[in-house]
Simulated assay, not measured.
Amino acid sequence: MKVSSLLGKLLTERLTLVDVGAAGGLHPRWRPAEDRLRLIGFEPLDEMSDDGKTLCLPWALGSADGEAELKVTKRISMTSLLDPASDLLARFWDKPEHTQIVERIAVKTRRLDDLADEHGFAPEFIKIDVQGGELDVLQGASDCLKNSLLAAEIELSFLERYKGLTKFAEVVSFMEDQGFELVDLWRIKRYRHRNRAGVVNPGISKGLRAGRLAFCDALFLKRDAELVRMAEENRAQAGKIIAIALIYGKADLAARLHDLTRESLEPDLNRDLDRYFAKVSGRQFGKRGVHRALDYFASKF
């Protein structure tokens, strides 16, 4: 059983995905569920369009309506509404060149809450990658965070790469105040210090790497008790929450939610999920599973 087949059965209603900083299109992890998504993309350099499946809105998101200046950088992925922190970035290889501003473009900023009302959508998942302005976007989405959002993927910075950037701990604290829990981190990136010897990333210590933590992607989910309540009370919500867990590789959480909601799911879906979880649990290698077997044998030595 492929995940794409499971997602098609889990998502009995379209899941509304908001992508803030949508350059590059839909991330491949969402492709298996593409036919069951309503995608809302924000990219201030694009034209407004809506084909019934994807709505593209040409605004930058923030905490208030207004105007801002988009700093387009030599490395386009580092483009931001904030100015690069040039003094700090000068310490690291490549970053002064990557963040060289090649164009400044006036853009309008809008609040997500207002646009959701105007265009009639209720975000259930939000992905934010705006190079330092993540908290500003979230502050303009308080109603969505409270009423409809199930989960969020947010790029977070460990150091002030842009002037005025809100760092990791403050965004995590804000999300916790809104009823979300930090579940995972990945794509952890490091900046390497410039030096005369040309040292960049030598392998000199097992398990550790050169460089300073710069940024990462983070997954937030509604607080556990609320997530479970929503899944248990509503078949469509249960399917969406389990689907998000599978898309982000949280098969353990998906299996737990399936345990709690299986009575509301269709018999054929329960059967397919049981087969899938049996496969990924490693039971085909024996009762204990691979990880339990390794733990067992390790305990004997």
Score class of each variant (00 low, 15 high):
His27Tyr: 10
Gly282Arg: 01
Leu57Val: 14
Ala255Pro: 03
Asn201Ile: 03
Ser264Cys: 08
Leu246Asp: 04
Ser80Glu: 06
Ile244Val: 15
Arg209Leu: 09
Phe301Ser: 13
Ala254Gly: 08
Gly132Lys: 11
Leu112Phe: 05
Ser63Arg: 15
Pro267Asp: 14
Arg209Gly: 11
Asp184Gln: 14
Leu45Lys: 03
Ser4Val: 10
Gly203Lys: 08
Ser205Asp: 13
Ser173Leu: 12
Lys74Phe: 08
Glu170Pro: 07
Asp19Gln: 08
Leu269Trp: 04
Glu266Leu: 11
Ala85Gln: 10
Asp51Gly: 14
Ser80Trp: 09
Gln237Lys: 08
Leu246Val: 03
Gly120Asp: 05
Asp143Phe: 13
Ile247Gln: 07
Gln178Pro: 04
Ser299Leu: 07
Ile76Tyr: 09
Thr79Asn: 04
Gly207Arg: 04
Ser264His: 09
Lys163Trp: 07
Glu124Leu: 11
Glu134Tyr: 00
Arg190Pro: 00
Ala122His: 06
Asp252Gly: 11
Asp19Glu: 14
Arg283Tyr: 09
Pro202Lys: 09
Val183Thr: 08
Ala85Cys: 12
Ser264Met: 12
Pro84Met: 07
Phe121Pro: 03
Leu150Gly: 00
Tyr276His: 12
Glu43His: 12
Leu253Met: 14
Arg283Asp: 03
Lys53Trp: 09
Glu97Pro: 00
Gly133Cys: 14
Asp94Met: 13
Val280Ile: 15
Ile40Pro: 01
Pro123Gly: 01
Met230Trp: 09
Thr12Pro: 10
Arg75His: 12
Asp274Gly: 07
Thr99Pro: 00
Leu45Ser: 07
Asp217Arg: 02
Glu43Lys: 02
Ile128Arg: 02
Leu17His: 10
Leu15Gly: 00
Leu11Val: 05
Phe297Pro: 08
Gly289Pro: 07
Thr54Tyr: 03
Thr99Arg: 05
Leu138Trp: 02
Ala68Trp: 01
Arg192Met: 11
Trp30Lys: 00
Ile154Pro: 14
Ile244Met: 08
Leu159Val: 15
Tyr248Ile: 05
Leu7Gly: 04
Glu103Arg: 13
Pro44Met: 08
Leu89Arg: 02
Gly286Ala: 03
Glu124Ile: 09
Lys189Ile: 05
Arg212Asp: 13
Glu153Gln: 15
Ala251Ile: 05
Arg38Glu: 10
Leu10Val: 08
His119Met: 05
Lys167Asn: 08
Asn201Arg: 14
Ala85Thr: 07
Asp87Tyr: 02
Arg212Tyr: 11
Ile242Tyr: 05
Asp46Pro: 00
Asn234Gly: 05
Arg209Ile: 13
Ala278Lys: 11
Val107Glu: 06
Glu134Val: 00
Val102Ser: 01
Leu88Phe: 10
Arg110Trp: 04
Arg256Ala: 04
Ser264Gly: 15
Glu34Met: 06
